[in-house]
Write a protein that binds this DNA or RNA. Sequence first.
DNA 1: CTGAAAGCGCTTACAG
DNA 2: CTGAAAGCGCTTACAG
Lengths: 354, 354
Amino acid sequence: MTQPSAKSPMTMAQIAAATGVSVATVSKVINQRSDVAPATRERVEKALAEQGYILNRAARSLRQGHSGQIDFLVGQELNSYYAFEILRGVEEALLTTDVRVVLASTHAHREREQQWRQRLSAGAIDGAVLVLADKRSFYLQELHRRSIPSVVVDPFGELGPQDLSVSATNWAGGKLATEYLLSLGHRRIAALMGEPAHPCTQDRLAGYRHALQMADVPVDPSLTRFADFHVEQAHQEMAQLLALPELPTAVFVGNDEQCMGVYRALAERGLTVPHDMSVLGFDDMPYAQWMTPALTTIHQPLLEMGRVATKMVLRLIADEPVETVRVELATPLVARLSCAPRRRRKGFRILPAG
Amino acid sequence: MTQPSAKSPMTMAQIAAATGVSVATVSKVINQRSDVAPATRERVEKALAEQGYILNRAARSLRQGHSGQIDFLVGQELNSYYAFEILRGVEEALLTTDVRVVLASTHAHREREQQWRQRLSAGAIDGAVLVLADKRSFYLQELHRRSIPSVVVDPFGELGPQDLSVSATNWAGGKLATEYLLSLGHRRIAALMGEPAHPCTQDRLAGYRHALQMADVPVDPSLTRFADFHVEQAHQEMAQLLALPELPTAVFVGNDEQCMGVYRALAERGLTVPHDMSVLGFDDMPYAQWMTPALTTIHQPLLEMGRVATKMVLRLIADEPVETVRVELATPLVARLSCAPRRRRKGFRILPAG
DNA sequence: CTGAAAGCGCTTACAG
DNA sequence: CTGAAAGCGCTTACAG
């Protein structure tokens, strides 16, 4: 029946008094400095544990000028699960540390940007994980000015030579997707991509073209379309594709979310997946396996990207070396039910069943 | 061409020196105390603005014992978009304040719980928004012990009389859903609910039963099934429902995520929505409108719930009164394409087309 | 190896 | 209305 104590927390001074050493020595023990006699250290550690000592971070922060916090900053609205997956990875990397994430995106509100800059200046931010930033990003520039460690996840444009980044192997992913569709016999393969300005779009598209060329399939420009990364525009663009005189038999799509729009456009035309059209996504979001039919897609390790970026930030904060400036994480293909071998044209040739 | 200054931030002492007043007076101006002469105040405010003064929060925090941070704590794994929507609401409420959210869920890791408790004790948490907690929750108990303001969003069980909460009108939502299906002519309406222990499940089910009784439709217990709130189990339970000798013609489902499993189970049996079965969800997650067919569902205002809860926490922190202890936010029905009028039994009666 | 002392930047009770 | 001074809890350079 230990009584819950709501008393104000222990201080180093109290521990010092209880142990008969100085506050300086207690501090040294807590900070694992080497210049403490083993016997003293042991005695202090025991008291610390027994009394349930708790470090006052505000005090340390005031003294040292840092805060035990890193910011999670998204270049756009926080309206997509995409960012959430990355955030979960950040959380995971921080699980065993005593660093916290702060969601600090300012969404381009001027007042909020001011506030954020203030926090920066006041030393309230030890580091940052930036999603969808490029070298012209407000955040990145401010962070550099203050020399605060940062890592960009999935850069949205060009980065400076000193900027660190973590992304997916987009080129390889685009190539793999296309090779898979080719292996199923498809030749007329459309690419319904996301935001054209995003480097990941460019890279995936380059992978797509490369795979086609390797297979001696001519690249038909009318088969490449762009949209933002959301459902609505994908739905529209797919409708455009379906208005073509000669339809593709497969589509490689910019992300899973867009695939929902693609499914819809197909359903509206009375076309079924994968019988009439193979659909291949990108991301492998949790819902991909539960779409009907279950979506074949390229896995983008968003959670892992968040985790890796966070670990890099942590190393930078601790002044430890970071191995690579540009990390790219693998993008395997997850085969489900939305892709099938190309059907022969109706009445063109009848293959024996089996 | 103002030179970006990476110098260490201004202090009150510098402002005081520049203005010819004392540090105490600067502090009073910043904290909007009344005991400052108008002329002095004006002079100091001018200097503050011109010099771009920035408050050092660590110092204030050390002095005052609070931190400008509230914790966002989820009782379960942070693996569902559900929590993300609430989090977005929290963010929104904080947009115009200088309070930050910290994602602090410990996921029942013992070591992390210790760390969290330390932060609590050290005054690093001014308040908390708890998702899916009940009165036995570790977080809630610790928070109460330290008298730190908190509000529970969507309580997972019973709460103490003094606990504040924000939830959706689950009973009304269940009733509304059922009435809608009844109005479409359905009489055999299944309820494929989520977690039976969750109060929201109980409330929705009560609403469902009430609506049936009001319409003089007997409640068939074999038509009520439970699962967790995720896709897999919903898929299984729906398969069970489809093994019944007499099938329902409509299902009211625990949440939108579960509906994906329901769609799948139906597709596997060759049944189409809404022709063979009407499906009605709960939540109105962003993807609901993009499921095929677009899901008719009860809108649960998760984002708004997060926002309201956060505003309550903010009021509590500021020692302002809070109007209501239990807030319930409305749950309108969003009609889309997954529900249709009940079809007459095959061969029972032929209606003229049109 | 140990500790006395200064100081991080603020707020507040108090004297004037 | 104004300000000198104490103190929040820590860390660090330095003397011993």
